[in-house]
Amino acid sequence: MNVFRFAGDMTHLFSVLVLLLKIYATKSCSGISLKTQELYALVFLTRYLDLLTDFISLYNTVMKLVFISSSLAIVWCMRAHPVVRRTYDKDQDTFRHYTLVAGSLVLALLFHDRFTIREVCWAFSIYLEAVAILPQLVLLQRSRNVDNLTGQYVFFLGAYRAFYILNWIYRYFTEQHFSRWIPWIAGLVQTGLYADFFYYYYLSWKNNVKLQLPA
């Protein structure tokens, strides 16, 4: 494992921890998109089917279990926790996320490695992950004033994608992973979606003011 991959995994883990911290510490999920969280839960459940069949390393297994359980826990909190669920901005979180699921499914049925359930699910999870952040970005944009932890959550998620791209560039030159163009495109799309957010995050950090996205 190279340093970029490890940094990517750690920033991904931080993003989840920041989100859990926000929900537990403030007993509030305002500014968090339930739709994005549900999409991530679906991404992890479909991608980590190999937990049942293959063993890669203890590190991989533990991380996969952490991502699956944390995403399910967050969805549960937002839907069912007696206090937290009342803070959910339901009226603003209106992105039609099933269109993302449907689009990813069609792409996965068309472009995959082999036509097996596992490979189609894997491809589906790659496509869906690339766009799963959209409902969250739309919600951020609508809620204007973004609290620090929510801003940091999205920042760490974006950093994770950026590190994964660096990881792929590194692996491209050091290993023989040549024609893996699907994750490249999906990863670039996803990182591009964050570019705008990063810019405003940087401005708020530089000027030491609260993060505010333009209308």
């Binding site: 293959d54 890669i56 390393s57 893996r180």
Partner: peptide, 10 residues
């Protein structure tokens, strides 16, 4: 395996 992300990644 020319389509997918390496399977050893998360």
């Amino acid at each position: 395996e020319c389509f997918s992300q390496p399977k050893d990644e998360l």
